[in-house]
Design a protein around this nucleic acid. Structure first.
Lengths: 246, 246
DNA sequence: GTAAAACATTGATCCAGATCAATGGTTGGA
DNA sequence: TCCAACCATTGATCTGGATCAATGTTTTAC
């Protein structure tokens, strides 16, 4: 007998150590499983939720990558994040019961949908669930604040270096190669997120390649010199490590 | 008999409608009061907490204004926010039990210190407290995301216009004039926050004054034309309203 | 009250990245 | 398989804001 529910539960998910069920006991995890809905896969380009829609659920990414955006009243769009498996979407929708941004699949994506009202009730009963939810929100606040520094203070090369290092760390955390990975997002998206023109993204990737710190083959990136990548534009006597977001 | 505790409680605080006790009943508010510590005033320039310190409490601003900053490993500092009365500090410290930024008083400041372990326990018992805490965190995530758009996409004039409008809204919310207020932060701080050089801040304020949309007298700002201020750099046929953070 | 320090403003010059243009490569649908 | 649309790269030129310099004003400490 094929039991789809037992195949796809928090208890046997490879992402437990970075997702909501972290630190839950097995019976507690079963309770959380009881409120989670597994979604059908989203295809590349599909919206998971849209800015302005009523807020109902948060979503944990199970597979694939997602970008989030905000649009101002002039229609100007800013990418606010790229989300990996184990990361939560929709945390910015609670205050007005409206999603304050849009989430879009960058490739085929599977999600766990967690209706927020039920999550809220369960969080009263399970202290570790409540705390982990708050930690995830706190992490996101901190990530966005560090991103403010990147946007306000760093050169194009530093921005790209920082971006690639962050991707590298998250691929590594998921068990993939830290030094060779495929970008799911376009150069236009990278530029949008980092506040750079697409031409500057392209140019700067080429420049980093000419310096020998990375190798670029279309969407494939190979990091050849991790220290070199984090030390971009550093003066010779300065420490070589950039703060890394996420 | 002077009873300091009864003078300073959530029940009779003018900031209830924008702070944690929002939506609590009177007995619930008494419970919250029981875990809050009132701090002695902080003087201008004093740190409330520092990046890297162990996370113990969040703080609600009772009077005065506070700025928060993050510093990267190169010592580069980015101001991440200006906080008004009724707003919460320290929400970015939960994930690592370390404050991920520093909070500094911009003038004489009074705070309510809320030890987080106690708040967490109480939030299990008081659903509305738990929800309001989450709403505050969600609001902050959203604010930072909108700030990313400002930093990445807008001109110096638009940045200043947006900044002044946001200040205006928060002064108004506190019962002060929406059109005439005194800046507590220096031009250098404004520039740091918006990713601009201090000279550009000064120049742009002068330019806005020459256009007649504001009047600048040192730290005093008078908004003469609110629509003009939000319509900076707009093409003639475009709507005139910028998205406003916070 | 005074002097030093800090802050704000203005002018001149410079430059990192944006914009515009053109070309080559990749992807998706028929 | 072919073609249109989209994406990525490269070159040339432009520009908004940074940097440097100088001066005026305000605040702070003694």
């Amino acid at each position: 007998m094929n039991a789809p529910m037992s195949i796809q539960s928090c208890g046997n998910c490879g992402l437990v150590s970075m997702c909501l069920p972290l630190a839950l006991t097995q019976p507690e995890m079963t309770q959380l499983d009881g409120i989670i809905k597994k979604s059908a896969p989203y295809r590349r380009g599909e919206s998971i939720f849209r800015q302005g829609d009523a807020f109902t659920s948060i979503y944990a990414v199970r597979a694939g990558m997602v970008k989030t955006t905000v649009v101002n009243t002039l229609g100007e769009e800013q990418i606010t994040g790229f989300y990996f498996p184990g990361e939560l979407l929709g945390l910015n929708g609670l205050h007005e019961n409206v999603y304050s941004g849009t989430a879009i699949a960058l490739e085929t994506v599977s999600l766990c949908e967690i209706p927020f009202l039920k999550l809220d009730e369960l969080s009263a009963l399970l202290p570790e669930l409540r705390r982990q939810l708050m930690r995830q929100m706190s992490q996101e606040i901190s990530d966005e604040q560090n991103m403010m520094l990147v946007l306000a203070k760093t050169s194009a090369e530093e921005k790209l270096g920082n971006f690639l290092i962050r991707l590298s760390l998250r691929f590594k955390r998921l068990g993939f190669s830290a030094t060779q990975f495929r970008l799911t997002m376009s150069r236009v998206d990278i530029g949008n997120y980092l506040g750079l023109a697409v031409e500057t993204v392209s140019r700067t990737l080429t420049k980093l390649q000419q310096r020998g710190v990375i190798k670029v083959a279309g969407k494939e990136i190979t990091i050849l010199d991790m220290d070199g990548l984090s030390g971009l534009n550093r003066k010779a006597d300065e420490p070589a490590k950039l703060v890394v977001v996420g």
